[in-house]
Amino acid sequence: MSDALRAEWTKLRTLASTGWLLVGTVVLTIGASAAVGAATHVSGENGQDPTKLALIGVYLGQSVVVVLAVLTIAEEYGTGMMRVTLAALPRRLVLLGAKVANVVGLTFVAALIALVGCLVVGRFMLPADGLNPDHGYAFVSITHAATLRAATGSVLYLILIALFSVGVATAVRDTGASIGLVLGLLYLPPILAQVVVEPLRQHLLQIAPMSAGLAVQATTNLRAQPIAPWAGLAVLAAWATASILVGGLLLRRRDA
C-alpha cells in the first residue's frame, strides 16, 4: 500500500497541473467570496447570513477540486498510462485507495487555506457592506460555534466533492464527460429547484449533492433550511460513497 501511495504521489506531484489547480482552488474560492463581498450591499435587516456569504466562494472553488480529482484518474485513461499503472500495481482497489488518499490529502490542504481566507475576507469586507453590529449582524468569527461548524463543514464538503469526482471519473474514464457529469449533478439541481413547486423543490434540495452538502454553511434561520447542516453533509457523503463503490466495482471488473 505504501508503495502504491508513493507511486501515486510521485505522479500527482510531478504534474504541472496539480500545483496550478491547488493554487486555483484557493485563489478562486477566496476571490469569489471577495467579489461577492465587494458587490453586496445590504440595506436594512434582510435576514442575511454573513457566514454563508463569506463562504460563498466554495460554490466556485469546488469546480477546481472537481477538475483535480477527475484528472488524477480519467487523464490516465486518456493517455493510455492506465495500462502501465495497472501492470505495475495489479491490485486495482489498492491503486484506487492510493489515488483517493493523495487527492484527499491535497484537497484538505487547499480547502483549509481557502476557507481560512474566506473567513478573513468575511471578517474584514462584509462589515462595510452593512453586515455589522450596527445593523444587527455579528462579525464573522471562528469563536462563534455555528461559524466554526460552517467552515470545518466546508472543508469536509470539498473533500467529499473530490471523493465523489474520483468515483465518477473511475466509472466514466473520460475527462470531459466526467467533469461535465459531476458539474451538472452539482450545479443543475439547485437551479431546477428555483423553478419547480413544493414539495418537489424541497425534496430536490434535500437529495442533490451540492445543495444538501452546503447546508452545512447555514448559520442563521436553520429551521427554514431544507435540510439540517450535518444531515446535509451526510447526504453528500452517501453520494461520495456510492460513487466510489460503483467506480471501484467497475475498475475491478472491467478491462482497462
Binding site: 497541473s17 466556485l60 472537481v66 484528472l71 487523464e75 475527462t175 470531459g176 467533469i179 461535465g180 458539474l183
Partner: peptide
C-alpha cells in the same frame, strides 16, 4: 478537455 469543459459550464 478539463479546463475547457469546466470553464464552459461554470
Amino acid at each position: 478537455s478539463a479546463s475547457a469543459v469546466t470553464a464552459g459550464i461554470v
